[in-house]
Design a protein around this nucleic acid. Sequence first.
DNA 1: CGGGGGGTTGAGATGTCTCAAGGGGTGTGG
DNA 2: CCACACCCCTTGAGACATCTCAACCCCCCG
Lengths: 236, 236
Amino acid sequence: MELSRDPAAASRRVVAPTLHVRLTDADAIPFPTRTIERGDALYCAGEPLRSLYTVQSGCFKTVATFPGTDDANTPHTQVTGFHLPNETLGLDGVCTARHESDAVALEASVVRIMPVGILEPLCREYAAMQHELLAIMSAEIVRASRLALMLGTMPARERVAAFLLDFFERFDASMASSGEQATDLLLPMTRADIGSYLGLELETVSRMLSKLQREGAIGLNGRQVRIVDRAILAHN
Amino acid sequence: MELSRDPAAASRRVVAPTLHVRLTDADAIPFPTRTIERGDALYCAGEPLRSLYTVQSGCFKTVATFPGTDDANTPHTQVTGFHLPNETLGLDGVCTARHESDAVALEASVVRIMPVGILEPLCREYAAMQHELLAIMSAEIVRASRLALMLGTMPARERVAAFLLDFFERFDASMASSGEQATDLLLPMTRADIGSYLGLELETVSRMLSKLQREGAIGLNGRQVRIVDRAILAHN
DNA sequence: CGGGGGGTTGAGATGTCTCAAGGGGTGTGG
DNA sequence: CCACACCCCTTGAGACATCTCAACCCCCCG
């Protein structure tokens, strides 16, 4: 999710290289698409991995569930990511051939379906595509590591601020329109989703958003958020 | 790093498929090795990515540093992983062609060097190798996500317990000797390393270890740790 | 009109951090 | 061979951030 980095456009590409856009050799492949309604799951944990998905429009959250350390323990659950257009879903399932998390649409969304059975041979044929796929997976590792870093080191206010900066930056990146910077947009997820993602309670998220508003960093109206002062947001 | 799962051997493979062992087609490739002294870095963040490394013996920690959300902020630093024999290092650098973290040897160690310039063509030739590489990268994504999950949802005691279980399990896995279960071993890292990894202060790690000892879950003598009662450790 | 989901805010409980002191080890230089 | 310094670890006590519990609001939908 690529928090805590400046919005330089160049670095953007690191986090969300998309699988088909730069597949110069194989771009014409007619991968099918699928529409997912808000609240529905694109896939669920445990299902066999059939395809990877690139978000075309809309937004998803991925939710991981792990059993407690042992048997009858409280299972832990957490939102592990939000996924905007041009980002790829399903990468965590490659190792076990089963999905490791649920992917749930936060709004009506469209994905491009890339069956793994087709993808691997393709990557063997086209070096650019192979490199692209490896880069995407590597970026996902970095993304997850940064999430861990944030959860391990940042206080609540910083987490929320970093989340907002990251989300806006990624939204900008998902709009092909070069270099635009959105200042005002509607978050597709609840406070509880944000909290789960950031390792905070929803009340804490709400408080921190209110605080950021009081500080003049953002404008707030329910899920409508406007970035007023990036410096204040980023600073500290 | 694959915390919070039972020690079933089958699931083990998910986390540390090794790059060469199962490369049935290309196993004979004479990748060179390199020895790293304790405290020395195998690579540092920002260096161009030349190779991936498989740990042959010893142990490494990877340390990520990120600038604060903004300019002159406190940079955040965290241990993002510990790496035992048969595990692969450097995967996070594939996306940028630069290493994203430092890899530091916790004891004198030997790695197998796999240059990326050789690896990619090889993977295009051998489907098994390609699949293997993808699986390793995917497993790394899962590993990082689980770390994030742990940091986001578990209290200190559980984190430390999960860390110990995971470390012992991985140690067992790194010993080819089938199905052995180590009960007593020497941690190669400091309390501060563990704390950084778990998102805790070193004092908290120390306290939780003492507490686990009082509870009869482990035996403790400095870095020497013995698992006395896995049930207590795992149980909440 | 009633119910439910989402959001905000307050006040007390609590887990972890911070600060501080002290106890081994180990390596080095006198 | 001793003395000292340094690193690592342990433990305590108070500070503080976040969680927990609770009340209330708004809005949408049936």
